[in-house]
Design a protein around this nucleic acid. Structure first.
Lengths: 202, 202
DNA sequence: CTTCTAAACGGACTCTACCCCGTTTATATT
DNA sequence: AATATAAACGGGGTAGAGTCCGTTTAGAAG
């Protein structure tokens, strides 16, 4: 009497989902995010357009899904890998390490990340939540006497991801810039975190 | 021999620009951002669609323009109004005050702000730049030994505006939430700024 | 093996942002 | 006033996201 769960994903549904993601990755590699249109994706995957939308809800949904695949890998490092990224180091150190890796990740996938937000602001998706959850945890462990840790986590998440998504990209016309901008942001992030922790001389 | 400037805005162009903004405000009031379509706007203003696009470049451009009108008013308060928002108070105090007012502003105009970004990420527009410029200035005055003030300003700007644009809105289905979320964010912002300044015991 | 039903499928349809380019007009110049 | 020209205008055309709903199918139950 399986009433609890909403019944497992049907086999054909799963097959098609994976196929669509694979094809999307191909198209992405060939012609960038702009080249991935819903029609083209459907046709090239040999499926109907309706199917694509039921599976991913929206165009941005496809990019979110792609991003999550990537992110899962590195989430494991965060949860169970070696310090300072994984457990074992102090909160401040881990925050800095997480920021550095996260920034690198976003720069590598900046096109996809931007496409994942487009036309779909306000639905942070699992993607962003990952950062949020992690920051929350580290802040809780930190022993800082924060008045509202939840809000601070939100702000720090925005400080970490926002600049990449909003600013760096616009200057991307230059090209190699992104690399350098990433380094600067990472350093600034470290500076910010350290100041935050230094302020608590308790 | 006026070669320097690109020749002033033509009279008819200006008239139409103002008319379009006025009509857009009307439509916004009547049916929200979703109700403002380019076709409808053009028709109701008695102009061609092409004109709308030449004037504002993109749909988001219209909302940016509306936002700027609003923002100009309060920018004056920042630059020349009474402390702590205006000059006269210390940098930390002014940062806190700016954040509070800015958050209130964004909450009041959250629909428009979101519409101004939609489909147009990566072009922060004058809107965001305002915050950036102001933060940069206050940080410079602060005497904090920041390694890279520019990057920190970017991060703080994101911390201030990002949460509104990304999180609050998604939970807006609830309704009255926004009000309360704004207060929490403002308090958290104050906390963040104060910690930042406290850390520098120079 | 047959039946049944929820879920998946497909593709025509709609709705809009945005482009293009031939036509019109404001304004500077003579 | 006549002329020249850069800018503005209009609105039909294109493309792509997202919706709808009738049809098909997986897979559970008997």
């Amino acid at each position: 009497m399986p009433l609890g769960r909403p019944r497992a994903e049907r086999a054909d549904a799963k097959r098609n989902r994976l196929r669509l993601l694979a094809v999307a990755r191909e198209m992405l590699a060939e012609s960038g995010p702009g080249g991935v249109t819903m029609d083209a994706l459907a046709e090239r995957a040999g499926l109907g357009k309706g199917t694509v939308f039921r599976r991913f809800g929206t165009r941005a949904g496809i990019f979110k899904a792609l991003l999550e695949e990537e992110a899962r890998r590195f989430q494991e490092l965060v949860l169970a890998g070696p310090p300072p990224l994984g457990p074992g180091a102090g909160p401040a150190e881990r925050l800095v390490a997480y920021g550095r890796v996260r920034i690198a990740f976003l720069i590598d996938n900046i096109d996809v990340a931007r496409a994942a937000m487009e036309r779909d602001l306000g639905r942070p998706a699992v993607e962003v939540d990952m950062t949020l959850v992690h920051l929350r945890m580290l802040l809780a462990q930190s022993g800082l006497g924060v008045r509202d840790p939840e809000s601070l986590a939100v702000q720090l998440a925005a400080a970490l991801e926002g600049p990449l998504l909003l600013y760096v990209t616009s200057a991307r016309a230059v090209g190699t810039d992104a690399e350098e901008a990433g380094v600067r942001l990472a350093d600034a992030w470290q500076d910010l975190v350290e100041r935050l922790f230094r302020s608590d001389s308790k």
